[in-house]
Structures are given as structure tokens and as C-alpha cells.
């Protein structure tokens, strides 16, 4: 069944959209990530204009993280105070990101910037994740004891001012690194159309030592809030949010996520992380090809609108 996407200005098969939504939802449930970093590239590679793909996926990420955040909220797995500071930084970051987005669109290098962004960012994250996962796999196999950091150990930003007590996380730390992390994820997320949960979680765990019981729920709430703001900003600034596209994807992914979460229980954590790392590297490689290999068609055409100039 064909549906006409009014903003993307193309006819697409509805089952194709719901299908990829479900597939991404399955993977996001399996790995506990939002799935934006897979969905946006998939849409771009299937012919949806890059600006529309990036902006519309923000809507889908909101839906995906809402159902996740709700279940963590019921279990008390969200530190609202911590989430507040993260979101504060995230909103500032998403304003900056959307501004860069429309600037790049005006100079005609948005497609390149998105490809390069994905290549560098996913390439880096994927490599780090893969090394980490392989190390864990080897360590688990050899049966060596894990060296844990001692609780008394300090990192340099623990000495930063504006310290605050976070009761639920049982931490006493400066709000500066929290806001900074939120802002960085906000910029990246609004530029590339990803929630950023899969970087936020390790950042909170390794840099700020947020307890594992709190970290996933809090990061989901951050992604939800920042992506909601980004979605509205994209709608106002570049008018490239396709609500019909976003809705078709949401329906698929919300359903798919449930099956993914069930399937995830049959795989070990380190195996899951290795698989996810390979997936991330695969997407990065696909973008690398588009930036480094001569294109089949060097010419492209675009309609100028909304007072765009060259």
C-alpha cells in the first residue's frame, strides 16, 4: 500500500516503513539503544532526502524512548535532578545543532556533513565498543578477576566548582560536566538525527560513575526531552519534519522493541555489545564509502526554498 509523504514529497510503501520501524525497534529493544543511528542512515539510503530523514527520526526517537522511560519510571530508575541538568545542557546543544544544520543546508554541504559526521562518530564509537567487548569476552574466557576502580579514586573534574548532592544517585559532583555531556550529545543528536543513548550511557557510567540502576532510565528521559525539543526546532527552522513518516516508523518500532527486549534475554551482555559494535562499524563503513568512493552520479539537484541562498 503506497502512502504519500507530504514533506518528503514521495510515495513510499507503508509496509516498508512500518517494517523497517519494526526491525529497528527489534534491534533497539535487543541492545537497549534508541535506534536512531540505524534508522536515519537506512532512510537516507532508501531515498528519503537527508534533511527530512534526520528531522523526522527525532519524532520516532521520542516515541521509542517514551515507552522505555515509562517502565524505568515505574521502577524508580530515574534521577530527576540529574536528568534536569542533562536536559538543560541538551536543549542548549540542540539549539546549536539545529543552527549548524540549517547553516550547512544553506551552503549545500549538509549531505556531506551528515555522512562525515556518521563516519567519524560511528567509526570512533564502534571501534571503542568493539575493543571493549572483545577484551571482556577474552577476560571472561580466561576467567581472570576484573580489576574494579576503588571508590576513593578521583577524576580531575570532581574538583570542579558548583558541586551538588544527587540523592537518588548517591553522588556529590559538579554540575558542569553533566551539562557539558548533555550539550555535546544534544549537538550530535540534532545534527545526525540520533538520540545518543548509546554514547550517553557509557559516558555517564565511566565519567560520572552514575550507578547502573539509574543510568539507563535517566538517559532515556534525557533523550526523550532533548529529541522532543529538537523535533520542534527542526519543524520551525527547516520545516523538514514529516509527521506521517515519523508516525509510520513509530508504530513499527514501538511494537518491534517489545520482541527485541525478549530476544535480548537469550544473549550475554558482552556478546550483545560485540554485535552492536559490529553493526555500528557497518553503518560507519557504508557512510565512509559514500564520502571516499567516486559517486555513480556526480550531479545532484535540489529545490531552493525558505529563503535559501547558495
Amino acid at each position: 500500500m503506497q502512502i504519500y509523504l507530504p514533506i518528503a514529497e514521495m510515495s513510499v510503501n507503508l509496509f516498508f516503513l512500518v517494517g523497517i520501524g519494526a526491525a529497528i525497534g527489534f534491534l533497539s529493544g535487543l541492545f537497549g539503544v534508541g535506534g536512531g543511528f540505524l534508522l536515519t542512515p537506512l532512510l537516507i539510503f532508501s531515498g528519503v532526502p537527508a534533511p527530512v530523514a534526520v528531522s523526522s527520526v527525532t519524532g520516532q526517537v521520542v516515541a521509542a524512548s517514551t515507552s522505555g522511560a515509562l517502565s524505568y519510571w515505574r521502577r524508580g530508575g530515574i534521577d530527576l535532578q540529574l536528568a534536569g541538568f542533562l536536559v538543560l545542557g541538551g536543549v542548549v546543544g540542540s539549539f546549536v545543532g539545529v543552527w549548524i544544520f540549517s547553516l550547512l543546508r544553506q551552503v549545500g554541504q549538509l549531505d556531506l556533513a551528515i555522512s562525515m559526521g556518521y563516519l567519524i562518530f560511528l567509526g570512533f564509537i564502534g571501534t571503542v565498543m568493539l575493543i571493549e567487548a572483545i577484551r571482556t569476552l577474552i577476560r571472561n574466557r580466561s576467567g581472570a578477576a576484573r580489576t574494579r576502580r576503588k571508590p576513593g579514586q578521583h577524576t580531575w573534574f570532581q574538583g570542579l566548582p558548583l558541586r551538588m548532592r544527587f540523592k537518588q544517585s548517591r553522588l556529590y559532583l559538579s554540575v558542569i560536566p553533566i551539562i557539558a555531556i548533555g550539550a555535546v550529545i544534544g549537538v550530535i543528536g540534532s545534527l545526525l538525527g540520533i538520540g545518543g543513548g548509546f554514547i550517553l550511557v557509557p559516558a555517564l557510567v565511566y565519567l560520572l560513575r552514575i550507578p547502573a540502576s539509574i543510568v539507563v532510565g535517566t538517559s532515556l528521559l534525557h533523550v526523550l526531552a532533548v529529541m522532543a525539543v529538537t523535533c520542534v526546532l527542526h519543524a520551525v527552522q527547516s520545516q523538514s519534519v514529516d509527521a506521517l513518516l515519523a508516525f509510520s516508523l513509530m508504530v513499527g518500532s514501538v511494537a518491534g522493541a517489545q520482541f527485541g527486549a525478549s530476544a535480548g534475554q537469550f544473549l550475554r551482555g558482552d556478546q550483545l555489545r560485540a554485535l552492536l559494535a559490529l553493526l555500528v562499524l557497518g553503518v560507519a563503513a557504508r557512510f565512509g564509502a559514500s564520502v571516499l568512493i567516486d559517486p555513480a552520479d556526480p550531479f545532484s539537484m535540489a529545490v531552493l526554498r525558505f529563503g535559501e541562498t547558495i
Binding site: G59, A63, S67, L70, V232, A235, A246, F247, M250, A257
Partner: peptide, 21 residues
């Protein structure tokens, strides 16, 4: 009405996510 449109999209997303949950 881009602002209203954006807010409506977000609301739709939250309701869909909540319903799914």
C-alpha cells in the same frame, strides 16, 4: 504553523510511545 505542527508531532510521538508501553 510550524511551531504547532512540531508540538503536535512530539505529542503524537509521546502518546504512541505511551500506548505502546
Amino acid at each position: 504553523t510550524p511551531l504547532l505542527y512540531g508540538l503536535a508531532t512530539v505529542l503524537l510521538a509521546i502518546v504512541t510511545g505511551w500506548l505502546g508501553g
